[in-house]
Amino acid sequence: MSETEINPTISKSTGLPRKRFYRARAHSNPLSDSHFPVPISPSQVDYSLHYPQLFPSSGQADSSKKIQFADVGCGFGGLLISLSTLFPETLMIGMELRDKVTEYVKERISSLRIANPGHYQNVSVVRTNSMKYIPNYFEKGQLSKMFFLFPDPHFKEKNHRRRVISPFLLDEYAYVLEDGGIIYTITDVEELGDWMKSCLENHPMFEALTEKELEADPVVKLLSSATEEGQKVARNGGQTFQAVFRRIVPTNQAS
């Protein structure tokens, strides 16, 4: 018997990793010290590790192509997988703090790559604390889309500073987003939805997308349907609250 056949964490029928073997806590403290390697600067991010088929040799093989989508707190990676086929030419990465969940997404991507040769080569995942290390991964204006889907609500006021959308962290997101880049947020917690919306509304470098623009954007539909959390909310007949904003150049804000 070969190794894979007895490995119970891989489903026999689909070849994909089974989620129940990658259960993790729903919450992780983003304030605690990190014990994983972090690239010193964006130029040190090894693309050949993440996208081996597109970047066969390590080092700066093709500096023209860079990661453009970041799914912050990607969870089990549902959105990434959907985006991967929708934007096959775009490099995208999921960032997740929980190591077991990251392992699952890694397995999921590699299984998909084996099952569908030539596909899913543009998607990867990294275990990191995006609240601390976003500037270590992306250069100024590198990203065109950022996703914050069903983030931890951190209800207690004492813990509000752990929220992934906060006035000060938006400064850093505005830094890595290109002019016109879009930030997508969605949650099933009304209080958090209001918070994320007001944070974005009050920030001088973001403006809301109009109804028409939301309608025309194919990605908006994925927010609630593609992720595992979104499907769970839909199953239970819950409500979702989304806020989609565009990165703009502030008007006479800075000198």
Binding site: S41, P135, K140, D171, Y175, M205, P250, Q253, A254
Partner: peptide
Amino acid sequence: GAHQIQSFCL
């Protein structure tokens, strides 16, 4: 507040 980041020196 100062929202516009010029650069990070890493």
